[in-house]
Design a protein around this nucleic acid. Structure first.
Lengths: 141, 141
DNA sequence: CTGCGCTGCTTAGTAGCCTAAGCGGACGTG
DNA sequence: CACGTCCGCTTAGGCTACTAAGCAGCGCAG
């Protein structure tokens, strides 16, 4: 089943030529950061300065085309998103995935009591709304 | 074709999975090239100039510390050695490969492109709100 | 000998990632 | 008002991968 990051709902922007209407790396990363409710400097701190705030800004605004794996790995772990997917989005060649590593079986579990099943059949627009809603909630704490 | 890092014919020093006396990237690549009987310029030609002969010489003599994934991939395919292994030897963070270090939730990465980290620190009330919101969205299709 | 081709290698220069420092604006506080 | 803090963002510069061109050495043919 569709466990591949092929169809990500985050952001509906149009850009990349490889995948149909995939947002730019910068746009995707900016959305991912906002979804976690972190600021540029908070990311800098959480990555132990592996990614400085100014540089992250450059990445998110597509001034940096292809960040290094090291940077992408830091961001993937702090945002909780897939590292291989980030590599691919950045245009790096990803080593043989042999598929199935994040199988749906496990993906159907729960995070923090949150049933992931409810996220699976969301449309792009719905995902966008959901992220905005999370962002909103966190901003009101 | 693709030899696992466990046993590829090239070089015998691959046995241990970690530090002890692993040849430098340059030494390993030089040995791999010689094992295939290719010259520097033959590699350049076979990679369609993706790796020029002069640059390959720099890599083999450890003048270049960390070649990019793109370069390493070209070499891996022309030599018939494992790409992930090359990434690791070059010091790049390799995806997959038993990242047991992280909790299941984080290892999951993203479902449907949805950054799971954004769900991890939600309060019960917030989770309820979110679920209600999802239900609401789906009911309005 | 001279020349030619092929070997590995060197080297000057360019491109782009990445850092450190600082900018202006928004917001709250005294 | 000033002051401090946080926000995203910009900019100058360094560092390094990477390119293009050319070098010296070796073997072999003429």
């Amino acid at each position: 089943m569709l466990s591949k990051p092929a169809d990500n709902g985050v952001m509906g922007e149009t850009r990349n030529s490889e995948h149909p209407t995939e947002p730019s790396l910068g746009a995707y990363l900016k959305e991912a950061r906002r979804a976690t409710g972190l600021t540029l400097r908070q990311v800098e701190e959480e990555t132990s300065k592996a990614v400085t705030n100014g540089y992250l800004s450059q990445i998110e605004n597509d001034d940096i085309i292809q960040p290094s794996p090291r940077i992408l790995y830091s961001l993937a772990t702090t945002y909780g998103i897939d590292y291989s997917d980030l590599l691919r989005r950045a245009g790096h060649t990803v080593p043989n995935e042999t598929d199935d590593q994040y199988s749906d079986a496990r993906a159907l579990g729960a995070v923090n009591g949150f049933p992931l099943r409810s996220l699976q059949d969301l449309t792009e627009t719905e995902t966008e709304h959901l992220l905005a809603y999370i962002e909103f909630m966190k901003s009101r704490r």
